[in-house]
Design a protein around this nucleic acid. Structure first.
Length: 420
DNA sequence: ACCTGGTCCCGGGCTCGGTTTT
DNA sequence: AAAACCGAGCCCGGGACCAGGT
C-alpha cells in the first residue's frame, strides 16, 4: 500500500444515489439566484407548481435545519472534547420518526467534515502544535447494513483511494480501515437508522467499528430509547417530535424553494401540520405528493383535492421513504411495480406475484417475487390485510397495502430511471 | 382430509478484485 | 503482459415445512 498520508479525502459525496442537500432559504433574498433560475429552466414544461422535488422531499435534508438549535448545541457540547484535541465521547441520538435526527446530524457532520484536518501530510513536528480536529463521517446504515459495507462506507469517506465493493474479504477491509485510522486523525462515525428491520443494532455497529480500529468514536442514531438498546453510550441526546409552529416553519421554508410562489397557502400548510402530528417526514411527503398531483393535473396551485390526495398517499403509521430507497435495485423495482398495480391485482399475494412477475421490467422468477413480497411485508414495508370472509377453500388470502409514501416514491423512481 | 397461504432456510451461481500461472 | 484461476459477498431460486381456513 502506498503512503496513505498524502492523498486524503476532500470533496466527496459518499453515495451518489442518496440525499442531495437543499440550499438555505432566506425567503426571496439574493441567495442562489442561479439555482432558482435553473429550477425554472428544468421544468419550463410544467405548470410551475413543483419546481424542485428535492427541496420538498422527505429524503433530502437542508444545509441548515430549521428550529433545532437546541439539539445542535447539545451535540456540539458532546463533541466539545474533539475541539481541544482529545477523543470525544460516544453518542446515541434517538427520537421519533421525522423529528429531525438525520437532518440535524447529517448537516452537522457535513459542516464539521469541512473543518476537520484536510489530512494533509502530517509532519510530526507540527502535529502537537495544532490539535487536529477528528474526521467526521456520516453513514446511513440502510446503505451499509453489513460489516463489509460499513467498513467500505467509512473507508470511502476517509480515503481518496478507490475502495473495492466486491471480491475482497471483510477482514481485509477492516485492516485497511485500521491502517487509515492509525495514520490519520481520529474518526467520529455517525451511523444513522440503526435497529431497523433491515439494519443492525447500535451494539453490533459499535462492535464492528471497534473491532476494526481503535481510535474510532461511534455515534449511533435510532428511534428506540436508550434503555431498550444493546449499547451503553457515553452521552445520549434525545429528540422529540416537532412542535406545531416549528413544523409550520420547516414546511414553509421548504415550500419556498421547492414550490412555485403561492402554490400552497398558509392555511393548507397548517392543515398538513395538524395532520402530520409533529412528523416532518410525513408532512413533507404529503406536500410533495400534493404538488405532484397538482402538477400532473395541470393546475397552477395545489387545490384542496390535490392536498387530500397528497395526504392520503402517506400512510399513518407508515415507514420512512428512505427505507424504501435504501433497498436493493431489484426490491425497489418490485415495489414500484407493486404500487402501479390495480387494486384487484393487489388483492392477494399470489395474484400480485403473477402480475408483478409478468411485467417485462421485472426479471425475477415468480417464486422469488413471492418470497420477496413476504419478506417486505415482514419488514413492515407492506401490510398484509387478511380478507375477513373467505370464499373458496383453504386459508383466506391477504391483500397488499403499501406502508410508504406512494406518490413521492413513484415520482422519484420515475425520475431516477428516466435519467438513468 | 384437504387445500391454500405463509415462514424459513440454504445451495448455487453471479460478479468482480486479487493472485497465480503462462 | 495476458490469461487463467480463486474466493469474497451477495442475491436468486426453490423447496420443505408450518398455519389457518373449509
Amino acid at each position: 500500500m502506498s503512503d496513505p498520508r498524502v492523498r486524503r479525502r476532500r470533496p466527496h459525496r459518499s453515495d451518489a444515489a442518496a440525499h442531495r442537500r437543499v440550499p438555505p432559504t432566506h425567503g426571496g433574498g439574493a441567495v442562489n439566484i442561479d439555482e432558482r433560475i435553473e429550477r425554472r429552466l428544468d421544468h419550463e414544461s410544467g405548470t410551475g407548481v413543483l419546481l424542485d422535488l428535492d427541496a420538498v422531499s422527505p429524503v433530502s435534508h437542508p444545509e441548515s435545519p430549521v428550529g433545532r438549535g437546541a439539539a445542535i448545541e447539545r451535540l456540539l457540547d458532546a463533541f466539545a472534547p474533539a475541539f481541544s484535541g482529545s477523543l470525544p465521547p460516544s453518542v446515541y441520538v434517538h427520537g421519533p420518526k421525522g423529528s429531525g435526527k438525520s437532518a440535524v446530524v447529517s448537516a452537522l457532520f457535513d459542516r464539521l467534515a469541512t473543518r476537520s484536518a484536510p489530512r494533509r501530510a502530517i509532519l510530526t513536528s507540527t502535529r502537537a502544535a495544532e490539535p487536529t480536529l477528528p474526521e467526521f463521517v456520516y453513514v446511513d446504515a440502510r446503505r451499509a447494513a453489513t460489516r463489509f459495507r460499513l467498513y467500505r462506507a467509512v473507508l470511502a469517506a476517509v480515503t481518496n483511494e478507490p475502495v473495492p465493493d466486491h471480491g475482497v474479504e471483510t477482514d481485509e477491509l477492516a485492516a485497511s480501515l485500521r491502517d487509515a485510522v492509525d495514520t490519520g486523525p481520529d474518526v467520529v462515525v455517525a451511523v444513522d437508522h440503526t435497529n431497523e428491520p433491515e439494519t443492525p443494532s447500535p451494539g453490533t455497529v459499535v462492535d464492528w467499528l471497534t473491532d476494526a480500529a481503535g481510535r474510532v468514536v461511534p455515534a449511533c442514531l435510532g428511534r428506540d430509547p436508550v434503555e431498550t438498546v444493546d449499547w451503553n453510550p457515553d452521552v445520549t441526546v434525545e429528540f422529540s417530535a416537532y412542535r406545531r409552529h416549528v413544523l409550520v416553519e420547516v414546511l414553509t421554508g421548504r415550500c419556498s424553494t421547492g414550490l412555485g410562489r403561492d402554490v400552497l397557502t398558509h392555511d393548507q400548510i397548517r392543515e398538513v401540520v395538524e395532520w402530520a402530528d409533529g412528523d416532518a417526514h410525513d408532512g413533507l411527503a404529503a406536500v410533495a405528493g400534493a404538488a405532484i398531483v397538482a402538477e400532473r393535473a395541470g393546475a397552477s396551485t395545489v387545490r384542496p383535492r390535490d392536498l387530500d390526495a397528497g395526504i392520503e398517499a402517506v400512510p399513518q403509521p407508515g415507514v420512512a421513504l428512505g427505507r424504501v430507497l435504501g433497498l436493493s435495485e431489484s426490491r425497489r423495482r418490485l415495489l414500484y411495480e407493486l404500487v402501479t398495480l390495480s387494486a384487484a391485482e393487489r388483492s392477494s399475494v399470489s395474484v400480485a406475484t403473477e402480475a408483478v412477475a409478468a411485467r417485462e421490467t421485472v426479471d425475477l422468477s415468480a417464486s422469488t417475487v413471492r418470497r420477496v413480497l413476504y419478506e417486505l411485508a415482514d419488514a413492515g414495508l407492506i401490510d398484509r390485510v387478511t380478507a375477513s370472509r373467505s370464499e373458496g377453500k383453504g386459508r383466506p388470502p391477504s391483500r397488499l397495502v403499501p406502508r410508504f409514501p406512494i406518490l413521492v416514491y413513484r415520482e422519484l423512481f420515475d425520475r431516477l430511471s428516466w435519467s438513468n
